[in-house]
Structures are given as structure tokens and as C-alpha cells.
Write a protein that binds this DNA or RNA. Sequence first.
DNA 1: ATGCACCCTGTAGCAACTACAGGGTCAAGC
DNA 2: GCTTGACCCTGTAGTTGCTACAGGGTGCAT
Lengths: 136, 136
Amino acid sequence: MKIGELSRATGTNIETIRYYERIGLLPEPHRTAANYRSYGDAHRARLAFVRHSRELGFTIEEIRSLLDLSDHPERECDEADRIATRHLEQVEEKIAQLTLLRDELTRIVGRCRGGVAADCRVIEALSDHSHCESAH
Amino acid sequence: MKIGELSRATGTNIETIRYYERIGLLPEPHRTAANYRSYGDAHRARLAFVRHSRELGFTIEEIRSLLDLSDHPERECDEADRIATRHLEQVEEKIAQLTLLRDELTRIVGRCRGGVAADCRVIEALSDHSHCESAH
DNA sequence: ATGCACCCTGTAGCAACTACAGGGTCAAGC
DNA sequence: GCTTGACCCTGTAGTTGCTACAGGGTGCAT
């Protein structure tokens, strides 16, 4: 299949596919006589793996390691588990941070009563960190 | 005060302070005879406002609008409230997304039983989106 | 033959910094 | 008076993960 078909089949932007190839995440496909890229099922599966991993928030470098492992099925899989576990921890920490943030923002937004900027509680809150309840 | 002092006083990287000046978020300070930047209290307050806003996740462009409002205290403050409210909504959406992600990752990580990559549940889960419980 | 959809390469842009390279300034200590 | 070290300057390039051109070639239908 050509790059446009692969793009539609995986929901990936054409430029992104070429970008993945450029950084070595996807192997270079065969070319037609007209120099068009020509992909097979293995390419599509690999791209699906990459997209799915990205959707789950893994970085390109993490995906590189995961793909490497997937290319060497005889290796121990503890590295994959380590990457996923660390990523899960990061996601949990991010959620915790954003939750604090949300509470702070809720307090700030809730205080606005309209009027002019001189009396604005939003701007006042941003000016003075000491009004905050949690560290950020 | 010199840039190093301002940096310590606000917990901002020196390069970041110069960056904010370059993009017009902070005004150009006076210079000493040796061409060193020289800041006063107004600068420090403005930088504190910017840092605090960044910590709360506002973008540079949002901060530009908020500063603009803060510079014109006679204006209506509904713009500030609109920016903060929209930002709060974005944070809430991000939390919701990350929560789905966390649940998916928890399922993936929890399934790993060790062994070789060929049998790895982490890699299997990444290969096959259909194992997922939620959209992402 | 001409229009259109598709493909190619290469480069530059985005956000919000961060990290140099290569130089100047200033006060303290010998 | 000379060195050492901490600080400051400008300008440019790197980071992440794409995305968006510009400027050109290909393939098929009308």
C-alpha cells in the first residue's frame, strides 16, 4: 500500500509517518519505480504499535526500547515492564499535580465577581502566590 | 538588582528571564555602565506574576493577555475570568484523559508475569488496541 | 493535453524553554 | 599589577513530537 493508504489505515498523518521513518522508528519501505513508498502488513502492524504507544503517552525513546524488545522475542521482558511501570508512575504523579492545580484554579475562578481589572480576584490571585493553598 | 539576584529572588532561570524579555513578556530593564541589566521591585512583581501563572499552567499568550489587563486596571475583568475558566476546563479534561490512561496502564502493567518478550503482556497489549477497555 | 489527486525531498515552524560558545566586567587576594 | 573566579553579555542552536509549507514529479481520467 502507498503512504496515503497507510495513513488512512492507521489514522496517522502522512508527514508523521515520514517523520517516524526519518528518526528510525519505522524501517525504510520498498519503493515503486516512481520512487513511491510501498508498505506491507508488517509495516502497518509496527506503525499501529507506535501509534498505540504514543496514545498511551510513551515517549519516542521508550517506544524505541519497546520495539527493540518486540523485535527480539527471546529476551527477558522485564525492561518492558520497567518502562510501563515508570510511565504509570509518571502519569499518576501528573494526575496528582493537575488535581492540585484544578483545586487552585477553582478557588481563583470562583472568586471573580466581575467589575474592573483593578478589583479582579483572578489577577490578584496570580499576583500573590501567598493566597494559594497548595504548593505548585 | 542584577539578573542573578532576580533569578534567585523568583526561582527563575537566568536564561528564562532573558527569554521572557526577548519575547516581550518582561519590559527591558535599565542597564548599568557595564551593560548589565538592572531590575527594580516592579520587575520582580511582574516576573512573579508570570512564574505563578506558568506554574498554574497558563500559556505565554494567556499570560500576555492577563498582564495586559493588569496593566489597565480600568478595564472590565471578564477577559481574565474567561481565560481562567477556559484553562480550568482544559485542566479538568486533561485529568479525565490521564485517568483513563492510568486505568489502561494499570491493566497492562498488572498483567506482566515476567519471562521472555515473546510472551510479554505489555508488548502484546501495545500491539493490539482491541485489548483496551477505553478509547484513547 | 490538462486537470487533479497523490507522491517526493528538504527545510522551517510550533511552545517554552535550555544550553552552549565566545566574549566582557568586577572585586578580592597575592 | 596581575590573576582567579564569579558573574554578566549576545547570539545561536538544541529539545520533543510533530506539522506545514515550497517546489517539484507521477498517474489516471476526461
